[in-house]
Design a protein around this nucleic acid. Structure first.
Lengths: 376, 376
DNA sequence: CGCGATGCTGCAAACCTTTGCAGCCGAAGT
DNA sequence: ACTTCGGCTGCAAAGGTTTGCAGCATCGCG
């Protein structure tokens, strides 16, 4: 039913190759002919079949974006940035969600492999070795994880964690908890490592709780454990968990930040909407999306993996060029952190009280401390 | 570089057609042969090229999902539901975001057309006629809009709006504002229509503000206008706008719900996290996603639009079977609505006061009123 | 007038699969 | 012993496009 290139050729009295060129190499065809072809194409509602084209050129002009959890507000800015960057280069982005499931991740890479020119693997939960293996099937750029030999873009959560911990230590906190993220998360490991050294260096004591699902309910479920741990400050794997934790503490009668200081990571927009507004480590998600698309497109425009185009030669050599980019993070201080309680512990028996002054806190400019930046 | 069916055939000493059948019709090939072929395929890391397969079968086992704004928390549950439903039927979902841009919408449909078996068009902003035209290019299911002759799944926002307005009128509100949504939104028109008749029937007066971008900033930008309108209650096009409006009113010194009652639409999870918790019309987004996938798959499994499979006959006749489903909505009463102020107007000069009792409101079961349900 | 260059178009192979048809072989039925 | 049948496999066309190569005029130049 849909018009093919042949229909157009017949209608305009030229060979199919001329029709093809009209679309893919207009300068090679006589303007007059081209006009006639275009008219017929328009008339018949012809659109090139991208699948057929991909079959021979080896390039689909699509890129796949695999996301751990689309419901996490952390991702949409990244997705949008990737899409707009891709659109500028005449590419389309197909997003797929894995529900934090490593199996689904692998399956999706396979499914996408032949339908896209490359895949952006965002916050993968699978093993490094599997990622490496999959990268032989389709060009991969990894986001939020470092895998040796593959192009990666990560956030410098290590620096962000240090900044957060120093902020808390400066405020007099000594007993600090870390709510870690999901099993398999590179970011979570980085945070944990950095938190460990930073707290120790500051003479504090770190309690690690987890692994946990990186969601709001994952956070609220930890309120009881946080109370029992007797800490005065908490760093959460992400904002969602931090917000959930605040909810949970609230239900337990513990006030934030008077009794417990809470800091999140990501700086999702939601973190500015809750009460108290969340102190958090801002990660440049949009930049990550853009960068990842750039790396992917540069990486495979260099060596077109075309069907005919004479397969790329160096399988090992071009690893030299695979970049690993790490993006700067920033600590944004808002209303969920305060000086440690005088007795050095949160009060175990908080009475019910009208909400504290943070409710009235003005919209003043948030304090900002910068983290590090690295690239290689 | 990637292994093709021919490589496997050579390696296992059979014809390519046997390899093909090993995967697509296993019962037609001798178990012994099949075993050998599978072994070789595994060995070589062979994966069928879905693009090539699609070229001949006419079915890609992909479905496209076009979304107005992926950053709107309304959509993720719909996306996830669609994905899981599709996965059960061995389909993959590709999500694309249009940034509320009608042009991008059209372009995406074209881009997806040949790479998917059908497209779910969610909250489209383009014209009905264009949608109808595009539906001749690829099977379409429309979500959040009714288009004659096309399968649609919508939410009964009309009933939800009526319930919300009755709730407000019962609470003594008479001057009510409606924050309408983006231009081109079917839902927004439905809400406006229903709001008009409901408020008039209740002896109230409706002020319509809009159209507006359906975002948090879109809502907060309207605070000033809402104040000037002198209304005591507001229904917003969606929760995001409602939450933004509450922020904006707060900045103006107007308290919700004491001075102004606010109700949203959608019941996104965020609406339970803000203070005050939002009264809102819950829409069954997950059900919508599932239903839409079902309608699409049923619709085109009936008549395979295969290349060879003898094109479908009835172009008009099968319209009889195109269903239009409308899903039930529910009014969820939380803390952002209250009785109208005694003087019938919000106080124009609110003093700064410690936050009201809604801060302490327990997690009690929300009151629920049911809306209608329709199907044809 | 001849020659090469230039601009445009047609030809046909190739991309990777699926699938209708035909062929082969052994077994079962008559 | 001859047919029939069934199970399995091979053959080749088809699907829609791109692209290197070759052919053909036309044109400019010497």
């Amino acid at each position: 039913m849909p018009a093919t290139i042949r229909d157009v050729a017949r209608a305009s009295g030229v060979h199919i190759s001329t029709v093809s060129r009209t679309f893919s190499a207009p300068h090679l065809v006589n303007p007059e002919t081209r006009g006639r072809v275009l008219a017929c194409a328009e008339e018949l509602g012809y659109r090139p079949n991208r699948a057929a084209r991909a079959l021979i050129t080896g390039r689909t002009h699509n890129i796949g974006l695999i996301i751990a959890d689309i419901a996490n507000p952390f991702f949409p800015p990244l997705i949008k940035a990737a899409e707009s960057q891709a659109r500028q280069r005449d590419y389309h982005v197909f997003v797929a969600d894995t529900n934090e499931d490593p199996i689904a991740e692998e399956e999706l890479v396979h499914a996408l492999a032949k339908q896209v020119d490359g895949v952006l693997l965002c916050s993968p939960r699978m093993s490094n070795s599997l990622i490496e293996q999959l990268s032989r099937e389709v060009p991969l750029v990894v986001i939020n994880r470092q895998v040796a030999g593959l192009p990666c873009v990560t956030m410098d959560v290590g620096q962000g964690t240090r900044a957060a911990m120093e902020h808390l230590l400066d405020a007099g906190h000594r007993r600090i908890a870390l709510l870690s993220g999901p099993r398999g998360s590179w970011t979570s490991r980085e945070i944990r490592r950095a938190a460990g050294v930073a707290v120790r260096a500051g003479g504090g004591e770190l309690t690690v709780l987890g692994p946990n699902p990186p969601t709001e309910t994952g956070g609220s479920a930890l309120a009881e454990q946080v109370r029992r741990a007797g800490v005065t400050a908490v760093l959460a794997y992400n904002d969602l968990m931090a917000i959930g934790l605040i909810e949970g503490l609230d239900a337990l009668g513990l006030r934030v930040p008077q009794d417990v200081s809470v800091v999140g990571i990501d700086d999702i927009t939601l973190s500015r909407l809750t009460r108290p507004k969340l102190t958090t480590v801002a990660t440049p998600t949009a930049a990550a999306g853009r960068t990842a698309v750039d790396m992917l497109l540069q990486h495979d425009s260099v060596a077109t993996r075309g069907a005919r185009g004479g397969g790329r030669s160096g399988t090992i050599d071009d690893r030299r060029t695979t970049a690993q980019v790490m993006l700067r993070t920033e600590l944004v201080i808002r209303d969920s952190t305060a000086a440690a309680p005088a007795d050095g512990r949160h009060r175990p028996d908080a009475e019910v009280v009208a909400p504290g002054p943070h409710r009235l806190a003005g919209p003043g400019r948030p304090t900002v401390a910068t983290g590090g930046v690295v690239a290689s």
